[in-house]
Amino acid sequence: MPYTEEDGGRLNNFAVEPKMYAAEPPTKKEQRNYIIFGALAAALVAGVVAVAIAASNVS
């Protein structure tokens, strides 16, 4: 544990910080996959909403 000692003799315990890294932009293949998964997610949400509307209209 990384402890530091202040002037009055008090100890402070600081959390270990994770290593930093620079994010890389997505590749063309990853971009295509994001579009496909987004479209599938939108279709799933639209389907769930359609089922909810159909079920709420049942007498």
Rank of each mutant, 00 (worst) to 15 (best):
M1P: 00
P2I: 04
P2F: 02
T4S: 05
T4W: 00
E5P: 00
E5V: 10
E6S: 08
D7I: 07
G8M: 05
G8T: 10
G9Y: 00
R10T: 05
L11P: 00
L11V: 05
L11W: 02
L11S: 00
L11I: 01
N12S: 04
N12V: 10
N12T: 01
N13D: 07
F14N: 04
A15G: 04
V16M: 01
P18C: 02
Y21Q: 09
A22R: 11
A22Q: 11
A23L: 14
E24M: 10
P25V: 01
P26K: 02
T27R: 08
K28E: 15
K29Q: 12
K29F: 10
E30I: 02
Q31R: 15
Q31I: 12
N33V: 06
N33P: 10
Y34A: 12
Y34D: 15
F37M: 12
G38L: 10
G38D: 05
A39E: 14
A39D: 13
L40Y: 08
L40C: 11
A41S: 13
A42Y: 09
A43M: 13
L44S: 15
A46N: 06
A46M: 12
V49H: 02
A50V: 11
A50T: 14
V51F: 15
V51D: 05
V51T: 11
V51N: 11
A52W: 00
A54P: 00
A54K: 10
A55G: 14
V58W: 13
V58G: 10
